[in-house]
Design a protein around this nucleic acid. Sequence first.
DNA 1: CTGTCGATTTTGTAGCACAATCCTGGCGTG
DNA 2: CACGCCAGGATTGTGCTACAAAATCGACAG
Lengths: 237, 237
Amino acid sequence: MGMREAVARSAVVSSGARTAPERVAEALRDELLDGAHPVGTRFREEELAERFDVGRHTIRAGLRLLVDRGLVVHERHRGAVVAPLSKQRIDEVFDYRKLLELGALRMALAAGADLRPVLAEVERLEALADRSPSPSWRELTRAHSAIHRAIVAAAGNAHVLESYQRCEDEIRLLLTFVRPDFDARHFAVVHRELVEKLEVGGEVAAEALTEDIDQSGRAALLAALRRAEESARLLGH
Amino acid sequence: MGMREAVARSAVVSSGARTAPERVAEALRDELLDGAHPVGTRFREEELAERFDVGRHTIRAGLRLLVDRGLVVHERHRGAVVAPLSKQRIDEVFDYRKLLELGALRMALAAGADLRPVLAEVERLEALADRSPSPSWRELTRAHSAIHRAIVAAAGNAHVLESYQRCEDEIRLLLTFVRPDFDARHFAVVHRELVEKLEVGGEVAAEALTEDIDQSGRAALLAALRRAEESARLLGH
DNA sequence: CTGTCGATTTTGTAGCACAATCCTGGCGTG
DNA sequence: CACGCCAGGATTGTGCTACAAAATCGACAG
Protein backbone atom coordinates (compact mmCIF):
# COMPACT_ATOMS: atom_id res chain seq x y z
CA MET A 1 0.00 0.00 0.00
CA GLY A 2 2.21 2.79 -1.13
CA MET A 3 0.68 5.37 -3.40
CA ARG A 4 0.16 7.86 -0.68
CA GLU A 5 1.55 10.77 -2.60
CA ALA A 6 0.48 9.74 -6.05
CA VAL A 7 -2.01 12.55 -6.13
CA ALA A 8 -2.24 16.06 -7.19
CA ARG A 9 -0.36 19.28 -7.67
CA SER A 10 -1.66 20.60 -10.92
CA ALA A 11 -0.67 23.92 -12.34
CA VAL A 12 -2.32 25.96 -9.61
CA VAL A 13 -0.22 28.18 -7.40
CA SER A 14 2.79 27.28 -5.38
CA SER A 15 2.16 23.79 -4.13
CA GLY A 16 4.77 23.37 -1.46
CA ALA A 17 4.62 21.05 1.49
CA ARG A 18 0.95 20.96 2.26
CA THR A 19 -1.20 19.07 4.65
CA ALA A 20 -3.06 15.93 3.65
CA PRO A 21 -6.51 17.56 3.74
CA GLU A 22 -5.23 20.36 1.53
CA ARG A 23 -3.90 17.90 -1.00
CA VAL A 24 -7.24 16.12 -1.03
CA ALA A 25 -9.13 19.37 -1.40
CA GLU A 26 -6.90 20.55 -4.19
CA ALA A 27 -7.24 17.31 -6.11
CA LEU A 28 -11.01 17.38 -5.79
CA ARG A 29 -11.08 21.04 -6.69
CA ASP A 30 -9.17 20.34 -9.88
CA GLU A 31 -11.57 17.58 -10.74
CA LEU A 32 -14.55 19.79 -10.03
CA LEU A 33 -13.21 22.60 -12.18
CA ASP A 34 -12.58 20.08 -14.93
CA GLY A 35 -16.23 19.17 -14.81
CA ALA A 36 -15.59 15.65 -13.59
CA HIS A 37 -18.39 15.79 -11.05
CA PRO A 38 -21.81 16.90 -12.27
CA VAL A 39 -24.30 18.77 -10.17
CA GLY A 40 -25.78 16.60 -7.47
CA THR A 41 -22.74 14.37 -7.04
CA ARG A 42 -22.33 13.16 -3.50
CA PHE A 43 -18.83 12.63 -2.16
CA ARG A 44 -18.79 9.61 0.08
CA GLU A 45 -16.13 9.73 2.71
CA GLU A 46 -15.25 6.07 2.77
CA GLU A 47 -14.77 5.94 -0.96
CA LEU A 48 -12.58 9.04 -1.02
CA ALA A 49 -10.58 7.74 1.92
CA GLU A 50 -9.80 4.63 -0.03
CA ARG A 51 -9.09 6.52 -3.24
CA PHE A 52 -6.60 8.88 -1.64
CA ASP A 53 -5.36 6.32 0.83
CA VAL A 54 -5.94 8.56 3.82
CA GLY A 55 -8.14 8.37 6.88
CA ARG A 56 -11.74 9.39 6.87
CA HIS A 57 -11.05 12.29 9.22
CA THR A 58 -8.62 13.66 6.68
CA ILE A 59 -11.26 13.42 3.98
CA ARG A 60 -13.74 15.22 6.20
CA ALA A 61 -11.25 18.02 6.74
CA GLY A 62 -10.62 18.23 3.01
CA LEU A 63 -14.31 18.40 2.23
CA ARG A 64 -14.69 21.19 4.74
CA LEU A 65 -12.09 23.11 2.76
CA LEU A 66 -14.17 22.63 -0.36
CA VAL A 67 -17.23 23.88 1.50
CA ASP A 68 -15.26 26.97 2.49
CA ARG A 69 -14.50 27.58 -1.16
CA GLY A 70 -18.15 27.30 -2.08
CA LEU A 71 -17.56 24.31 -4.34
CA VAL A 72 -19.79 21.93 -2.43
CA VAL A 73 -22.46 22.27 0.18
CA HIS A 74 -22.68 20.18 3.28
CA GLU A 75 -25.77 19.04 5.07
CA ARG A 76 -25.73 17.16 8.28
CA HIS A 77 -25.77 13.41 7.94
CA ARG A 78 -25.96 13.81 4.20
CA GLY A 79 -22.44 14.81 3.42
CA ALA A 80 -20.90 17.00 0.76
CA VAL A 81 -22.73 17.38 -2.54
CA VAL A 82 -22.18 19.51 -5.61
CA ALA A 83 -24.82 22.20 -5.30
CA PRO A 84 -27.42 22.56 -8.04
CA LEU A 85 -27.48 25.48 -10.46
CA SER A 86 -30.21 28.03 -10.54
CA LYS A 87 -30.70 31.45 -12.00
CA GLN A 88 -31.02 32.78 -8.50
CA ARG A 89 -27.70 31.30 -7.45
CA ILE A 90 -25.95 32.71 -10.51
CA ASP A 91 -27.35 36.16 -9.90
CA GLU A 92 -26.42 36.03 -6.28
CA VAL A 93 -22.85 34.99 -6.81
CA PHE A 94 -22.35 37.48 -9.61
CA ASP A 95 -23.74 40.31 -7.51
CA TYR A 96 -21.34 39.30 -4.82
CA ARG A 97 -18.47 39.18 -7.25
CA LYS A 98 -19.35 42.57 -8.67
CA LEU A 99 -19.40 44.03 -5.20
CA LEU A 100 -15.99 42.61 -4.36
CA GLU A 101 -14.30 43.30 -7.64
CA LEU A 102 -15.59 46.82 -8.09
CA GLY A 103 -14.82 47.64 -4.49
CA ALA A 104 -11.34 46.27 -4.90
CA LEU A 105 -10.83 48.27 -8.07
CA ARG A 106 -11.88 51.46 -6.34
CA MET A 107 -9.51 50.69 -3.48
CA ALA A 108 -6.68 50.03 -5.89
CA LEU A 109 -7.32 53.18 -7.88
CA ALA A 110 -7.66 55.30 -4.76
CA ALA A 111 -4.35 54.00 -3.50
CA GLY A 112 -2.70 54.56 -6.85
CA ALA A 113 -1.87 50.89 -7.04
CA ASP A 114 0.22 49.39 -9.77
CA LEU A 115 -1.95 47.89 -12.49
CA ARG A 116 0.88 46.34 -14.46
CA PRO A 117 0.18 42.84 -13.13
CA VAL A 118 -3.26 43.14 -14.68
CA LEU A 119 -1.75 44.16 -17.97
CA ALA A 120 0.62 41.23 -17.78
CA GLU A 121 -2.29 38.83 -17.39
CA VAL A 122 -4.07 40.41 -20.34
CA GLU A 123 -0.97 39.90 -22.43
CA ARG A 124 -0.86 36.30 -21.33
CA LEU A 125 -4.43 35.90 -22.54
CA GLU A 126 -3.52 37.51 -25.85
CA ALA A 127 -0.61 35.15 -26.27
CA LEU A 128 -2.94 32.26 -25.57
CA ALA A 129 -5.42 33.50 -28.15
CA ASP A 130 -2.67 33.73 -30.78
CA ARG A 131 -1.20 30.35 -30.00
CA SER A 132 -1.04 27.74 -32.75
CA PRO A 133 -2.84 24.88 -31.00
CA SER A 134 -5.81 26.89 -29.93
CA PRO A 135 -6.17 26.93 -26.16
CA SER A 136 -8.42 24.53 -24.34
CA TRP A 137 -11.56 25.78 -22.71
CA ARG A 138 -10.01 25.41 -19.33
CA GLU A 139 -6.84 27.27 -20.21
CA LEU A 140 -8.92 30.09 -21.55
CA THR A 141 -11.14 30.44 -18.52
CA ARG A 142 -8.16 30.13 -16.26
CA ALA A 143 -6.37 32.96 -18.02
CA HIS A 144 -9.51 35.03 -17.82
CA SER A 145 -9.84 34.39 -14.10
CA ALA A 146 -6.23 35.41 -13.63
CA ILE A 147 -6.93 38.84 -15.08
CA HIS A 148 -9.74 39.55 -12.71
CA ARG A 149 -7.86 38.11 -9.78
CA ALA A 150 -5.01 40.46 -10.58
CA ILE A 151 -7.42 43.38 -10.45
CA VAL A 152 -8.55 42.38 -7.00
CA ALA A 153 -5.01 41.66 -5.87
CA ALA A 154 -4.05 45.20 -6.85
CA ALA A 155 -6.12 46.45 -3.94
CA GLY A 156 -3.53 44.90 -1.67
CA ASN A 157 -6.04 43.65 0.88
CA ALA A 158 -5.72 40.01 1.88
CA HIS A 159 -9.28 39.76 3.20
CA VAL A 160 -10.71 41.00 -0.05
CA LEU A 161 -8.51 38.75 -2.12
CA GLU A 162 -9.41 35.70 -0.10
CA SER A 163 -13.12 36.36 -0.39
CA TYR A 164 -12.73 36.94 -4.08
CA GLN A 165 -10.92 33.70 -4.64
CA ARG A 166 -13.71 31.80 -2.93
CA CYS A 167 -16.18 33.53 -5.17
CA GLU A 168 -14.06 33.00 -8.26
CA ASP A 169 -13.84 29.27 -7.60
CA GLU A 170 -17.58 29.06 -7.27
CA ILE A 171 -18.09 30.91 -10.53
CA ARG A 172 -15.59 28.77 -12.36
CA LEU A 173 -17.46 25.72 -11.14
CA LEU A 174 -20.74 27.11 -12.41
CA LEU A 175 -19.06 27.82 -15.73
CA THR A 176 -17.85 24.24 -16.11
CA PHE A 177 -21.40 23.00 -15.84
CA VAL A 178 -22.75 24.97 -18.74
CA ARG A 179 -19.53 25.64 -20.67
CA PRO A 180 -20.43 28.80 -22.53
CA ASP A 181 -18.26 28.99 -25.58
CA PHE A 182 -15.79 31.82 -25.41
CA ASP A 183 -13.96 33.06 -28.44
CA ALA A 184 -10.33 33.50 -27.49
CA ARG A 185 -9.64 36.38 -29.89
CA HIS A 186 -12.71 38.28 -28.91
CA PHE A 187 -11.93 37.66 -25.25
CA ALA A 188 -8.44 39.06 -25.72
CA VAL A 189 -9.65 42.17 -27.50
CA VAL A 190 -12.32 42.86 -24.92
CA HIS A 191 -9.89 42.59 -22.07
CA ARG A 192 -7.28 44.69 -23.80
CA GLU A 193 -9.88 47.42 -23.98
CA LEU A 194 -10.82 46.79 -20.39
CA VAL A 195 -7.34 47.20 -19.02
CA GLU A 196 -6.87 50.39 -21.00
CA LYS A 197 -9.99 51.82 -19.46
CA LEU A 198 -8.91 50.67 -16.03
CA GLU A 199 -5.73 52.68 -16.41
CA VAL A 200 -7.80 55.75 -17.09
CA GLY A 201 -9.29 55.36 -13.65
CA GLY A 202 -12.39 56.93 -12.15
CA GLU A 203 -15.86 56.10 -13.37
CA VAL A 204 -14.58 55.04 -16.77
CA ALA A 205 -12.75 52.19 -15.10
CA ALA A 206 -15.63 51.24 -12.84
CA GLU A 207 -18.12 51.21 -15.68
CA ALA A 208 -15.86 49.18 -17.93
CA LEU A 209 -15.40 46.58 -15.23
CA THR A 210 -19.12 46.45 -14.48
CA GLU A 211 -19.78 45.95 -18.16
CA ASP A 212 -17.28 43.14 -18.39
CA ILE A 213 -18.60 41.32 -15.35
CA ASP A 214 -22.17 41.54 -16.52
CA GLN A 215 -21.41 40.75 -20.15
CA SER A 216 -18.58 38.26 -20.45
CA GLY A 217 -19.51 36.86 -17.06
CA ARG A 218 -23.10 36.76 -15.97
CA ALA A 219 -24.81 37.11 -19.34
CA ALA A 220 -22.69 34.40 -20.93
CA LEU A 221 -23.42 32.08 -18.04
CA LEU A 222 -27.14 32.74 -18.06
CA ALA A 223 -27.35 32.28 -21.81
CA ALA A 224 -25.47 29.01 -21.57
CA LEU A 225 -27.73 27.92 -18.74
CA ARG A 226 -30.79 28.58 -20.87
CA ARG A 227 -29.30 26.58 -23.72
CA ALA A 228 -28.41 23.74 -21.38
CA GLU A 229 -31.90 23.69 -19.91
CA GLU A 230 -33.38 23.73 -23.38
CA SER A 231 -31.39 20.73 -24.57
CA ALA A 232 -32.14 18.90 -21.34
CA ARG A 233 -35.80 19.48 -21.94
CA LEU A 234 -35.55 18.28 -25.54
CA LEU A 235 -33.85 15.13 -24.36
CA GLY A 236 -36.74 14.44 -22.06
CA HIS A 237 -35.87 16.31 -18.88
CA MET B 1 -41.98 32.64 -5.76
CA GLY B 2 -40.51 35.86 -4.45
CA MET B 3 -37.27 34.85 -2.87
CA ARG B 4 -36.37 37.77 -0.70
CA GLU B 5 -35.34 35.91 2.39
CA ALA B 6 -31.62 36.08 2.94
CA VAL B 7 -31.41 32.80 4.70
CA ALA B 8 -29.29 33.02 7.80
CA ARG B 9 -27.33 29.84 7.34
CA SER B 10 -24.22 30.92 9.16
CA ALA B 11 -22.17 28.31 10.88
CA VAL B 12 -22.39 29.52 14.43
CA VAL B 13 -25.63 31.03 15.56
CA SER B 14 -27.23 30.75 18.92
CA SER B 15 -29.83 28.07 18.56
CA GLY B 16 -30.29 24.66 19.99
CA ALA B 17 -29.66 21.27 18.49
CA ARG B 18 -26.45 21.76 16.54
CA THR B 19 -23.42 19.68 16.00
CA ALA B 20 -20.78 19.22 18.65
CA PRO B 21 -18.10 21.26 16.83
CA GLU B 22 -20.55 24.11 16.41
CA ARG B 23 -21.36 24.10 20.08
CA VAL B 24 -17.67 24.19 20.89
CA ALA B 25 -17.05 27.01 18.42
CA GLU B 26 -19.95 29.00 19.75
CA ALA B 27 -18.82 28.68 23.33
CA LEU B 28 -15.30 29.74 22.46
CA ARG B 29 -16.59 32.57 20.32
CA ASP B 30 -18.62 33.90 23.22
CA GLU B 31 -15.60 33.73 25.46
CA LEU B 32 -13.45 35.46 22.90
CA LEU B 33 -15.95 38.27 22.40
CA ASP B 34 -16.12 38.65 26.17
CA GLY B 35 -12.40 39.21 26.20
CA ALA B 36 -11.66 36.04 28.12
CA HIS B 37 -8.72 35.11 25.92
CA PRO B 38 -6.07 37.78 25.39
CA VAL B 39 -4.06 38.12 22.22
CA GLY B 40 -1.56 35.33 21.83
CA THR B 41 -3.60 32.72 23.68
CA ARG B 42 -3.06 29.25 22.32
CA PHE B 43 -5.91 26.80 22.38
CA ARG B 44 -4.61 23.36 23.15
CA GLU B 45 -6.73 20.60 21.76
CA GLU B 46 -6.32 18.11 24.57
CA GLU B 47 -7.29 20.66 27.19
CA LEU B 48 -10.35 21.79 25.27
CA ALA B 49 -11.36 18.21 24.62
CA GLU B 50 -11.35 17.57 28.35
CA ARG B 51 -13.13 20.82 29.13
CA PHE B 52 -15.97 20.22 26.71
CA ASP B 53 -15.91 16.48 27.21
CA VAL B 54 -15.64 15.75 23.51
CA GLY B 55 -13.06 14.09 21.31
CA ARG B 56 -10.06 15.89 19.98
CA HIS B 57 -11.34 15.66 16.41
CA THR B 58 -14.43 17.52 17.45
CA ILE B 59 -12.29 20.25 18.97
CA ARG B 60 -10.26 20.46 15.80
CA ALA B 61 -13.42 20.88 13.76
CA GLY B 62 -14.63 23.56 16.15
CA LEU B 63 -11.37 25.46 15.96
CA ARG B 64 -11.57 25.37 12.18
CA LEU B 65 -14.91 27.11 12.45
CA LEU B 66 -13.28 29.82 14.52
CA VAL B 67 -10.56 30.16 11.91
CA ASP B 68 -13.25 30.61 9.27
CA ARG B 69 -14.71 33.43 11.30
CA GLY B 70 -11.35 35.13 11.57
CA LEU B 71 -11.28 34.85 15.35
CA VAL B 72 -8.13 32.76 15.54
CA VAL B 73 -5.36 31.89 13.16
CA HIS B 74 -4.01 28.44 12.62
CA GLU B 75 -0.48 27.45 11.79
CA ARG B 76 0.59 23.96 11.09
CA HIS B 77 1.86 22.05 14.11
CA ARG B 78 1.28 25.15 16.19
CA GLY B 79 -2.45 25.12 16.53
CA ALA B 80 -5.00 27.87 16.93
CA VAL B 81 -3.90 31.13 18.50
CA VAL B 82 -5.58 34.46 19.01
CA ALA B 83 -3.95 36.66 16.40
CA PRO B 84 -2.06 39.74 17.55
CA LEU B 85 -3.30 43.27 16.93
CA SER B 86 -1.57 45.70 14.67
CA LYS B 87 -2.42 48.96 13.01
CA GLN B 88 -2.06 47.23 9.70
CA ARG B 89 -4.52 44.51 10.62
CA ILE B 90 -7.05 47.05 11.82
CA ASP B 91 -6.76 49.07 8.64
CA GLU B 92 -7.07 45.99 6.52
CA VAL B 93 -10.14 44.62 8.19
CA PHE B 94 -11.83 48.01 8.22
CA ASP B 95 -11.11 48.55 4.55
CA TYR B 96 -12.63 45.16 3.93
CA ARG B 97 -15.65 46.01 6.02
CA LYS B 98 -16.09 49.31 4.27
CA LEU B 99 -16.01 47.60 0.91
CA LEU B 100 -18.61 45.05 1.96
CA GLU B 101 -20.92 47.37 3.82
CA LEU B 102 -20.89 50.17 1.29
CA GLY B 103 -21.32 47.71 -1.53
CA ALA B 104 -24.22 46.10 0.28
CA LEU B 105 -25.80 49.47 0.91
CA ARG B 106 -25.58 50.38 -2.77
CA MET B 107 -27.11 47.03 -3.67
CA ALA B 108 -29.91 47.55 -1.19
CA LEU B 109 -30.63 51.08 -2.35
CA ALA B 110 -30.51 50.09 -6.01
CA ALA B 111 -33.02 47.32 -5.35
CA GLY B 112 -35.25 49.65 -3.36
CA ALA B 113 -34.87 47.39 -0.36
CA ASP B 114 -36.75 47.88 2.85
CA LEU B 115 -34.64 49.74 5.40
CA ARG B 116 -37.08 49.42 8.28
CA PRO B 117 -35.11 46.61 9.93
CA VAL B 118 -32.21 49.04 10.16
CA LEU B 119 -34.44 51.62 11.75
CA ALA B 120 -35.69 49.00 14.19
CA GLU B 121 -32.14 48.24 15.29
CA VAL B 122 -31.41 51.94 15.74
CA GLU B 123 -34.47 52.23 17.96
CA ARG B 124 -33.26 49.27 19.95
CA LEU B 125 -29.97 51.08 20.48
CA GLU B 126 -31.83 54.21 21.56
CA ALA B 127 -33.86 52.21 24.04
CA LEU B 128 -30.66 50.76 25.38
CA ALA B 129 -29.11 54.19 25.75
CA ASP B 130 -32.13 55.43 27.70
CA ARG B 131 -32.31 52.43 29.97
CA SER B 132 -32.03 52.91 33.71
CA PRO B 133 -29.17 50.50 34.43
CA SER B 134 -26.85 51.77 31.77
CA PRO B 135 -26.01 49.09 29.28
CA SER B 136 -22.88 47.03 29.53
CA TRP B 137 -20.09 47.53 27.07
CA ARG B 138 -20.93 44.29 25.39
CA GLU B 139 -24.61 45.03 25.06
CA LEU B 140 -23.76 48.33 23.51
CA THR B 141 -21.35 46.97 20.95
CA ARG B 142 -23.70 44.14 20.16
CA ALA B 143 -26.54 46.57 19.46
CA HIS B 144 -24.23 48.61 17.31
CA SER B 145 -23.17 45.58 15.33
CA ALA B 146 -26.80 44.67 14.80
CA ILE B 147 -27.46 47.98 13.08
CA HIS B 148 -24.70 47.50 10.58
CA ARG B 149 -25.58 43.89 10.05
CA ALA B 150 -29.12 44.96 9.24
CA ILE B 151 -27.78 47.33 6.61
CA VAL B 152 -25.89 44.52 4.94
CA ALA B 153 -28.80 42.13 5.29
CA ALA B 154 -30.99 44.62 3.43
CA ALA B 155 -29.01 43.84 0.29
CA GLY B 156 -30.59 40.40 0.39
CA ASN B 157 -27.47 38.56 -0.72
CA ALA B 158 -26.45 35.60 1.41
CA HIS B 159 -22.85 35.60 0.20
CA VAL B 160 -22.40 39.22 1.17
CA LEU B 161 -24.04 38.75 4.51
CA GLU B 162 -21.94 35.75 5.36
CA SER B 163 -18.71 37.52 4.49
CA TYR B 164 -19.81 40.50 6.50
CA GLN B 165 -20.56 38.44 9.56
CA ARG B 166 -17.09 36.96 9.45
CA CYS B 167 -15.66 40.41 9.23
CA GLU B 168 -17.94 41.73 11.95
CA ASP B 169 -16.85 39.00 14.35
CA GLU B 170 -13.24 39.82 13.72
CA ILE B 171 -13.83 43.49 14.37
CA ARG B 172 -15.76 42.78 17.54
CA LEU B 173 -12.85 40.71 18.74
CA LEU B 174 -10.41 43.51 18.03
CA LEU B 175 -12.71 45.86 19.91
CA THR B 176 -12.76 43.68 23.01
CA PHE B 177 -9.00 43.88 23.24
CA VAL B 178 -8.78 47.64 23.43
CA ARG B 179 -12.30 48.44 24.66
CA PRO B 180 -12.74 51.95 23.37
CA ASP B 181 -15.29 53.68 25.55
CA PHE B 182 -18.46 54.41 23.66
CA ASP B 183 -21.02 56.85 24.96
CA ALA B 184 -24.42 55.23 24.57
CA ARG B 185 -26.33 58.47 24.08
CA HIS B 186 -23.93 59.83 21.56
CA PHE B 187 -23.93 56.49 19.78
CA ALA B 188 -27.70 56.54 19.56
CA VAL B 189 -27.82 60.08 18.21
CA VAL B 190 -25.16 59.41 15.63
CA HIS B 191 -26.93 56.34 14.36
CA ARG B 192 -30.31 58.01 14.29
CA GLU B 193 -28.76 60.58 11.97
CA LEU B 194 -27.15 57.82 9.98
CA VAL B 195 -30.34 55.95 9.32
CA GLU B 196 -32.09 59.13 8.28
CA LYS B 197 -29.40 59.79 5.74
CA LEU B 198 -29.56 56.21 4.55
CA GLU B 199 -33.22 56.67 3.77
CA VAL B 200 -32.36 59.64 1.60
CA GLY B 201 -30.31 57.31 -0.55
CA GLY B 202 -27.72 58.12 -3.14
CA GLU B 203 -24.38 59.62 -2.30
CA VAL B 204 -25.75 61.14 0.90
CA ALA B 205 -26.31 57.64 2.23
CA ALA B 206 -22.97 56.32 1.04
CA GLU B 207 -21.05 59.21 2.52
CA ALA B 208 -22.86 59.01 5.83
CA LEU B 209 -22.05 55.33 6.11
CA THR B 210 -18.42 55.86 5.17
CA GLU B 211 -18.18 58.53 7.80
CA ASP B 212 -19.67 56.26 10.44
CA ILE B 213 -17.40 53.35 9.63
CA ASP B 214 -14.30 55.49 9.69
CA GLN B 215 -15.28 57.50 12.74
CA SER B 216 -17.20 55.37 15.22
CA GLY B 217 -15.39 52.32 13.94
CA ARG B 218 -11.84 52.59 12.77
CA ALA B 219 -10.84 55.84 14.43
CA ALA B 220 -12.19 54.77 17.82
CA LEU B 221 -10.34 51.50 17.57
CA LEU B 222 -7.07 53.06 16.50
CA ALA B 223 -7.27 55.66 19.26
CA ALA B 224 -7.96 52.98 21.83
CA LEU B 225 -5.09 50.94 20.46
CA ARG B 226 -2.73 53.88 20.88
CA ARG B 227 -3.90 54.35 24.46
CA ALA B 228 -3.53 50.67 25.18
CA GLU B 229 -0.04 50.63 23.74
CA GLU B 230 0.84 53.68 25.77
CA SER B 231 -0.24 52.17 29.06
CA ALA B 232 1.46 48.92 28.20
CA ARG B 233 4.65 50.89 27.65
CA LEU B 234 4.23 52.75 30.94
CA LEU B 235 3.79 49.45 32.74
CA GLY B 236 7.07 48.25 31.39
CA HIS B 237 6.39 46.86 27.95
C1' DC C 1 24.48 35.86 26.19
C1' DT C 2 24.07 32.69 22.41
C1' DG C 3 23.73 28.49 19.94
C1' DT C 4 23.03 23.54 19.95
C1' DC C 5 20.93 19.32 21.17
C1' DG C 6 17.79 16.21 23.31
C1' DA C 7 13.51 15.31 25.90
C1' DT C 8 8.89 16.67 26.28
C1' DT C 9 4.75 18.51 24.54
C1' DT C 10 1.47 19.28 20.99
C1' DT C 11 -0.47 18.74 16.63
C1' DG C 12 -1.37 15.66 12.32
C1' DT C 13 -3.16 11.48 10.71
C1' DA C 14 -4.67 6.48 10.71
C1' DG C 15 -7.80 3.15 12.22
C1' DC C 16 -11.50 1.25 14.62
C1' DA C 17 -16.01 1.25 17.13
C1' DC C 18 -20.39 2.70 17.75
C1' DA C 19 -24.35 6.06 17.76
C1' DA C 20 -27.36 8.98 14.99
C1' DT C 21 -29.49 9.70 10.94
C1' DC C 22 -30.56 8.90 6.20
C1' DC C 23 -32.12 6.11 2.56
C1' DT C 24 -34.20 2.14 0.26
C1' DG C 25 -37.22 -1.32 -0.54
C1' DG C 26 -40.80 -4.33 0.94
C1' DC C 27 -45.27 -4.90 3.13
C1' DG C 28 -49.88 -4.12 4.50
C1' DT C 29 -54.07 -1.32 4.23
C1' DG C 30 -57.46 1.44 1.93
C1' DC D 1 -52.68 1.59 -7.63
C1' DA D 2 -51.60 4.87 -4.04
C1' DC D 3 -50.13 5.61 0.40
C1' DG D 4 -48.08 5.17 4.77
C1' DC D 5 -45.29 2.33 7.77
C1' DC D 6 -41.43 -0.17 9.07
C1' DA D 7 -37.07 -2.84 9.03
C1' DG D 8 -32.53 -3.04 7.83
C1' DG D 9 -28.52 -1.37 5.25
C1' DA D 10 -25.74 2.63 4.17
C1' DT D 11 -23.51 6.89 5.45
C1' DT D 12 -22.20 10.42 8.45
C1' DG D 13 -21.04 12.08 13.39
C1' DT D 14 -18.26 11.40 17.27
C1' DG D 15 -15.19 9.10 20.63
C1' DC D 16 -11.10 6.52 21.52
C1' DT D 17 -6.27 4.95 20.96
C1' DA D 18 -1.92 4.95 18.74
C1' DC D 19 1.82 6.70 16.48
C1' DA D 20 4.44 10.04 13.37
C1' DA D 21 5.91 14.82 12.63
C1' DA D 22 6.95 19.08 14.20
C1' DA D 23 7.38 22.62 17.67
C1' DT D 24 8.64 23.92 22.34
C1' DC D 25 11.37 23.97 26.34
C1' DG D 26 15.27 23.33 29.14
C1' DA D 27 19.99 21.91 29.97
C1' DC D 28 24.38 22.60 28.65
C1' DA D 29 28.62 24.06 26.21
C1' DG D 30 31.01 27.79 24.14
